[in-house]
Design a protein around this nucleic acid. Structure first.
Lengths: 259, 259
DNA sequence: GCAAGATTCTCACGATGTGCGAAACACAAT
DNA sequence: ATTGTGTTTCGCACATCGTGAGAATCTTGC
């Protein structure tokens, strides 16, 4: 019945905690929740629940549907657009990506760090070269099985990496997916050494991907560029594609102001 | 400098109010905000600001970038996806829309009420019949200049309509856009009478749209279906398209469980 | 090394959010 | 209509929780 299992109190301002917990709970219920369900899930008194809900409604974060169920409102949609607007790459960087796509004859991706997480900042695809899967601008899941994810995980220190893997788990998507954490760490060493990451049929059968790090002025990796193609094509053009992503990474870095 | 002008205290739980105000402020700043900027914009003490920010960070709603600017985090992206998942039409309804698109040889839309607002629940387009403008699943802007918007505004009572127009204004997008509120109210009477709404070049030059209301069991309008085409095409096929949207609206209603 | 911010800490006050219980309301079933 | 069940609001008294001020500490730029 309860939608979330996390009930440990995270230290913080209590009402703020509860406000966000309500948003999370309503968001993860496909049809929304009733006030009673929320009160039960968060162990709140009915009165408090209604007061918080009223506040959320006033800000248009929640709306009540027929049957008095609370569902997400307009303000959440606007925030969702805002986060994508904040993540999306600059026009200059997007231009570089388009050039990569044309050179590689394959869709090109730019990913960046966003706190401890990884976000897709742009996808340069086209009708001839469609993007893989459901990859859109926004935060990325299952980074451990993509080439760009390996680049970015390789940048993390041991503690941060462990935290990330704990949170996102290591679901296997194909027979080639690396689920063994030790094997993954070893591969990340290789990534650090070569400054390049590849992935062949780990994310999706018949598909391969290669990525290079984008390094800021300070030398730190601030993101990754990558292209994806068929496993077959990758086998014959690996060296070409590697040069394309390395060059692309450099161009993106020079097109990025500051940092 | 300040990002929002709304500073009147909406009655509500204060910390919750402030939490949401912070999210709104950060969301409407393209590059995020610093703690000091936020403290100033919301008239908070630094200490309180940091405490609220810490809470928002713990829930992954905010993240701090380089230069210690606060930007929207992973949880916001997830909520954004959740709201779209909650809005999107059922597979049955989507099927109906696809049928309409094929019959009309034009993109078809389904819109629904969401609190006082209007949301796009599905767009059935195709490579041959691309959707107009930047219309995606989510809350819709400028409803007064679209055919589906007129259908739905016609359902509102006078007070609710006024509130809506106050909030969303009446921007003119083309020379044909109706900006006069009296003229709009008159047109909505016509919509109520005919149970059909049209729009010709009010939203975009050379473009026209026709919409019919989707009525629930109780008889109340719960949404609208519409198709858009060129103004030229519309002139010659108006009657056909009207029948298509009327039939489509009925099919969507029967495909919708309950309500 | 110094200075100017930015961030955290400490503390005491009292406003603010809280739960409880009762009351008002909505709505079905009979 | 009438009861009954569940939902939502109200009123109230308490103390928890959030608060601001200011000092202390940590960063950062120069």
């Amino acid at each position: 019945m309860s939608t979330t299992k996390s009930s440990r109190d995270s230290a913080g301002i209590r009402s703020a905690d509860r406000t966000l917990a309500i948003l999370d709970a309503v968001g993860s219920a496909p049809d929304g929740l009733t006030a009673a369900e929320l009160a039960h899930a968060l162990a709140l008194s009915p009165a408090t629940t209604y007061r918080l809900l009223a506040t959320l409604q006033e800000h248009d974060y929640l709306v009540r549907s027929r049957e008095s169920r609370y569902i997400l409102g307009r303000a959440v949609d606007e925030l969702g657009r805002a986060v994508r607007a904040q993540i999306i790459a600059t026009p200059d960087a997007r231009r570089v990506l388009s050039g990569m796509r044309d050179a590689a004859r394959a869709p090109a991706y730019l990913t960046v760090f966003r706190g401890d997480d990884i976000a897709v900042a742009h996808v340069a695809d086209s009708a001839q070269h469609p993007r893989i899967g459901q990859l859109h601008v926004g935060f990325a899941e299952s980074a451990h099985i993509t080439a760009f994810g390996k680049i970015m995980l390789a940048e993390k220190d041991a503690a941060s990496l462990s935290r990330y893997l704990d949170r996102h788990g290591a679901r296997a998507l194909t027979a080639h997916t690396i689920t063994n954490e030790a094997a993954l760490r070893e591969q990340l060493d290789e990534v650090r050494a070569l400054q390049i990451a590849t992935e062949v049929e780990e994310y999706m059968p018949k598909l391969a991907c290669i990525a290079a790090p984008v390094r800021g002025r300070s030398g730190r990796t601030i993101g990754a560029v990558s292209v994806s193609t068929t496993a077959e094509d990758f086998a014959s053009r690996a060296h070409d594609l590697e040069r394309i992503v390395r060059r692309g990474a450099w161009h993106v870095a020079s097109a990025s102001p500051g940092i």
